[in-house]
């Protein structure tokens, strides 16, 4: 079966700065792929090239079988992007945001689509409030809901949990897992190792403009010396304490 994303020798420079120096990667259909890298490593640049927002300087990238440089319109038909910052219209209500995107995707039943997504993302009560009144987690949920309008088979999530509190973060993780369970391919960038570990079928690490390792988590673990057995006292992490206290842990 053809891969959802196929990238070979991708290059991109901003003036003097050589951000991508020949990136190769493949994303299987229906999988969750996590691109790991520190801030400024070029994760967003890769997302921007794959979503046709930016043109590469060299190399070839194919998304859902379409070359991003040659067939950008076909690529856009088949993807959805949730950028690094929640790209919602704050002056519109949650419902209006969803209806707007549904109309722009030329769906005939835009209000029905909006209703369904509001329900699925637990935003029905807040549906007719301006998005500017939403909490960070609600914004992110609305943002992702907007990306699901039209049911694109491939979704890009650029650092979807950056700046979210632990609770909202777990909510986003749950959503991503649901998406993948329904067959959507998810391309995710993150700087949190545990996020990649939690979600991804395959992980690639971007460092100094190249993918230095990639593979399933189990494969990556094999790259390291075999585990040594040590006895240590397991202290709960602050996150676990926090979540236990506010009683949301069972949601995970």
């Amino acid at each position: 079966m053809q891969n959802a994303i196929q990238v070979k020798g991708l290059q991109k420079s901003y003036k003097q700065l050589h951000v991508l120096k020949g990136v190769d990667l493949e994303v299987e259909r229906g999988s969750i792929f996590a691109l790991l890298g520190s801030n400024g490593s070029g994760k967003t640049t890769i997302v921007e090239i794959l979503t046709t927002l930016l043109k590469q300087d060299g190399g070839k990238a194919t998304v859902n079988g379409f070359d991003v440089a040659l067939k950008p319109d076909n690529v856009r038909q088949s993807i959805s992007l949730t950028g690094q910052f929640a790209a919602i219209d704050e002056i519109l209500t949650g419902r209006e945001n969803l209806v707007m995107i549904a109309r722009l995707r030329h769906l005939s039943n835009s209000s029905q689509v909006a209703n369904d997504l509001l329900q699925r993302f637990g935003l029905t009560d807040a549906a007719d409030r301006k998005a500017s009144t939403y909490s960070g987690g609600m914004r992110r949920r609305l943002d992702i809901a907007m990306s699901l309008v039209g049911g694109s088979p491939l979704i890009f999530l650029d650092e979807p949990t950056t700046g979210l509190d632990p609770e909202a973060r777990i909510e986003v993780w749950k959503m991503v897992k649901e998406l993948a369970a329904n067959g959507t391919t998810v391309f995710l960038t993150t700087q949190y190792l545990d996020e990649a570990e939690q979600l991804a079928d395959r992980i690639a690490i971007l460092h100094e403009g190249r993918i230095i390792v990639s593979g399933a988590l189990a494969e990556l673990k094999k790259l390291f010396p075999s585990a040594k057995i040590e006895y240590i006292e397991k202290q709960p992490t602050l996150e676990e304490i926090f979540l236990a206290i506010i009683g949301k842990k069972e949601k995970n």
């Binding site: 046709t52 927002l53 856009r76 959805s80 690094q84 910052f85 790209a87 704050e90 995107i101 722009l104």
Partner: peptide
């Protein structure tokens, strides 16, 4: 706010 970015990827 990234709204153009969203539109331009659609």
């Amino acid at each position: 706010r990234g709204i153009f970015e969203r539109f331009n990827s659609m």
